[in-house]
């Protein structure tokens, strides 16, 4: 009880000194969201250039709850945390994996999505299947395709330090390496599998995941009120089934 009181008073105290971020957003009338250009199916563009995807719809729900409009501020991925810290936008809602290193610079909400890195392969080249164990045993001989700068690349380097890692700009280009047999395996978010298999029916995915990752919204360190509110909203949307619907709509049904 005492501990709780201390925590509560710290929270209240910080809200008092730093002022309300929520109030600032509502006065402005716009919720500014930081994203990089595209990371389908979380966020991308449709034929008319309108931003669509799982995180876009989530952002619109947040804005609606705040009673404001939503605006997406586009920066490149490598500069997205500095941009948040210099007030270019209010939050990063961009399928960002929660990591301890990032959490030193920004605060993360509780996870709103859980994804994992999966191993994919060409079922024609490996008719008996390919598993994490088999790939590790292949040692230096194995070539793994990944997307440059993705958590898949990090996982591939960590789990298969001897393997040759081939990096590509898009998931699509990496997957194509499996088809042309230039790569033996590919490490990527498991949720991409549905979209990839539509284009390349030969690709199969191993059912066990290499890693699991939590995605969260990044908030500036001092915006405690916003962080607490976002946590509440995420909890609420998980319980009322909204996230289930979003997942079904954007990760499974939507044809990217």
């Amino acid at each position: 009880m005492k501990k709780l009181l201390v925590v509560l008073s710290i929270v209240i105290f910080s809200v008092v000194i730093f002022g309300g971020k929520i109030e600032e957003i509502q006065k402005r009338g716009v919720l500014l969201i930081g994203q990089d250009p595209a990371y389908a199916p979380f966020y991308g563009i449709n034929e008319n250039g309108k931003r669509i995807g799982h995180d876009i719809e989530f952002a619109k729900i947040l804005a609606e709850l705040l009673g404001v409009k939503v605006k997406f501020v586009i920066t490149n991925w490598d500069g997205i945390i500095p941009a948040l810290m210099t007030n270019k936008f209010d939050i990063i809602l961009a399928a960002m994996t929660i990591t301890p290193e990032r959490a030193l610079k920004v605060n993360f909400t509780i996870p709103y999505y859980q994804t994992g890195q999966a191993l994919m392969y060409n079922s024609k080249k490996y008719p008996d299947g390919l598993s994490i164990k088999k790939v590790s045993e292949m040692g230096e001989k194995v070539k793994i395709a990944v997307q440059l700068g993705s958590t898949g690349e990090i996982a591939a380097r960590k789990f298969f330090p001897k393997a040759k890692i081939l990096t590509f700009e898009t998931v699509d280009a990496a997957a194509y390496q499996l088809i042309t047999k230039k790569a033996d395996a590919m490490i990527f978010d498991d949720l991409y599998y549905g979209n990839l298999v539509k284009k390349y029916p030969l690709i199969k995915m191993d059912s066990s995941l290499l890693t699991k990752e939590n995605l969260g919204i990044a908030v500036k360190k001092e915006d405690i009120d916003l962080l607490l509110w976002l946590n509440t909203v995420i909890e609420y949307l998980k319980t009322d089934g909204t996230f289930e619907q979003l997942k079904q709509k954007w990760m499974i049904d939507y044809k990217w």
């Binding site: 990089d36 250009p37 595209a38 990371y39 389908a40 991308g44 563009i45 449709n46 586009i74 920066t75 490149n76 700009e169 898009t170 998931v171 699509d172 280009a173 194509y176 979209n195 990839l196 284009k199 990217w256």
Partner: peptide
């Protein structure tokens, strides 16, 4: 495109990522 200017290359990369049709 490195500063996220919506010019031809940027648009091309964005569509490549959004549409699963890189080439």
């Amino acid at each position: 495109s490195v500063i996220a200017l919506q010019e031809l290359t940027m648009v091309g990369r964005q569509i490549a990522t959004s549409s699963f049709a890189s080439f």
